[in-house]
Amino acid sequence: MSGNVLVFLESDGGRLRKPAREGLGAGAALAAALGVELHAVIAAPDAAAVAAAEGGLGVAALHVVEDPALATSLAGPHCRAVKAAAAAASAAWLLFPATVLGRDVLATVAGALGAGVAADATALEVVGGEVRITRPICAGKAVQVVAAKRSPFCIGLRPNAFRAHGGGATGRTETHALPAGAAGAPAARVLEVRAPEQRSVDLTEADVIVSGGRGLKGPEHFHLVEELAAALGGVVGASRAVVDAGWRPHSEQVGQTGKTVSPKLYVACGISGAIQHLAGMNSSKCIVAVNKDAEAPIFKVADLGIVGDVFEVLPALTAAVRAAKG
């Protein structure tokens, strides 16, 4: 199972995304434990410029695949780029940060290489030469450890779970052409992209999340949650109850049937803490709960709690946070 480690680096707006840096951190530790080289691949329409802007990445080799076809967030072209880089890198261990694109590239590369695969890792270790992957299951209600039994093996990395890499020199840079897709093979094609003017950070990558639940009593009161999120520099989440009620979009739902998140700070406002919600957020580093029911299950997982009405506490908290941040 010898072979190098290759990290898939996703970029956006000419720079690496935060999960890419975490992938380099996880990859550096894995390569050191296995005694193999760390390689990375940037596959983007502006890959060479991204590589130049980032400087040293602490890798033995950086593989650059630049092609206009890589502007898409569809997996197909990225899968071909990673396959080409994996061959050049003699890669046995392929790491993919679990962004929307990263998940798809993880699965399609694993399928194309006939490789093993484990998604959403929160820790990697090497035990007696065997790579072991720790991953939460059932949205965090249990934790599974799997051992890779063959290589190549593809591993998805959960955002906010690995320490970002500090950098260092890049040994060499190799440029590869994007291999053409198989002739006649059907492929999805993007017709149109509708982007909001201001793109928000995805919940799974956010450092701070402020979530609201039924305690807000109606969608018209969610501005209290939005204002606290803005003051804390975070993004808005929601419980299943309020998404089901149509108060908030599905994309904001935190929980077992929504997003599993692990931010540095999670503030639950007017959320009682159904088991499927707790499962989706209990790996957050610090949990703050505001709820008027002192017996609510949310207080069993919260590090810090205030028993009180969200209509009274949230405006006071928003003002105090603004003041504290100056």
Partner: peptide
């Protein structure tokens, strides 16, 4: 929602 892998569909498409 048990295994939480989200990879089987992509594996199928590739295979």
């Amino acid at each position: 929602i048990d295994d939480d892998s989200g990879v089987v569909a992509g594996l199928l498409a590739a295979r």
